[in-house]
Structure formats: C-alpha cells, structure tokens
Simulated assay, not measured.
Amino acid sequence: MTQMDVQDDRAKVWVNQVTTPYREGRAGEDAGPGTPFVSSHVFVFERAGDGWLLAEDGTDAEHR
C-alpha cells in the first residue's frame, strides 16, 4: 500500500504491485524469471459492519 484516504464510510487505497513473469527457456537454456514490472491499482472500500468490503476497482478512473 502506498497511500490511503478514508472519508466517512469509504476508503480509497493506492497499491503498487511488483510482478516477475516466468519466461520459458530457449532450446538448451533453462527457464527462469523475466524482467520485473510494477503495476499500480486504486481500490475503493466501503465499511461493512465491523470490517470493509471492496466496493470498486477505481484504477481506470484514477489513471485517466
């Protein structure tokens, strides 16, 4: 989590995710990890009783 903004019963959370893809090896070469990359997401949660529930994935709206 990189940032969180809570307003009343809604919370917006910014998350960066690092992914390392697994690549296939060429003939005679061992397979191994590829180049890591980062993707960013924005999730909106709403209060539900004593906890929180994911209300929407706001990633597209946030990155316009």
Rank of each mutant, 00 (worst) to 15 (best):
M1G: 12
M1I: 14
T2P: 03
T2Y: 10
T2F: 10
Q3E: 13
M4H: 10
M4F: 04
D5R: 10
Q7E: 06
Q7R: 12
Q7G: 02
Q7K: 12
Q7P: 00
D8P: 00
D8K: 05
D8Y: 02
D9R: 02
D9P: 00
D9N: 05
R10Y: 01
R10I: 01
R10D: 01
R10Q: 07
A11Q: 07
A11V: 13
K12Q: 14
K12P: 00
K12V: 14
K12A: 07
K12S: 12
K12G: 02
V13Q: 05
W14T: 07
W14D: 13
V15S: 06
N16A: 14
N16C: 02
N16V: 11
Q17D: 12
Q17G: 01
Q17F: 00
T19N: 14
T19R: 13
T20Q: 14
T20K: 07
T20F: 03
T20H: 07
P21S: 09
P21W: 07
P21C: 06
P21I: 03
Y22C: 01
R23Y: 12
R23E: 15
R23W: 10
R23Q: 15
R23D: 13
R23M: 13
E24H: 08
G25S: 10
R26T: 15
R26G: 15
R26K: 14
R26C: 13
R26Y: 12
R26E: 14
E29A: 05
E29S: 04
D30T: 03
A31D: 14
A31P: 05
G32Y: 04
G32S: 04
G34C: 05
T35F: 00
T35V: 04
P36Q: 10
P36R: 07
P36F: 12
P36W: 08
F37A: 11
V38S: 06
V38C: 01
V38A: 04
V38Y: 01
S39W: 04
S40W: 09
S40V: 03
H41W: 09
V42R: 02
V42E: 07
V42M: 05
F43H: 14
F43R: 12
F43L: 15
F43N: 11
V44K: 05
F45P: 00
F45W: 05
F45T: 02
F45A: 11
E46G: 08
E46A: 15
R47A: 11
R47L: 06
A48V: 05
A48W: 03
A48Y: 04
A48C: 08
G49W: 04
G49K: 09
G49P: 03
D50M: 05
D50A: 14
D50I: 00
D50H: 06
G51N: 08
G51T: 15
W52T: 08
W52C: 10
L53P: 00
L53N: 06
L53C: 00
L53A: 09
L53F: 00
L54A: 12
L54I: 11
A55M: 01
A55F: 01
E56A: 15
E56N: 10
E56G: 09
D57L: 11
D57N: 15
G58T: 04
G58F: 06
T59E: 11
D60N: 05
A61R: 06
E62Q: 14
E62V: 04
H63I: 06
H63E: 14
R64N: 13
R64L: 15
R64W: 11
R64S: 14
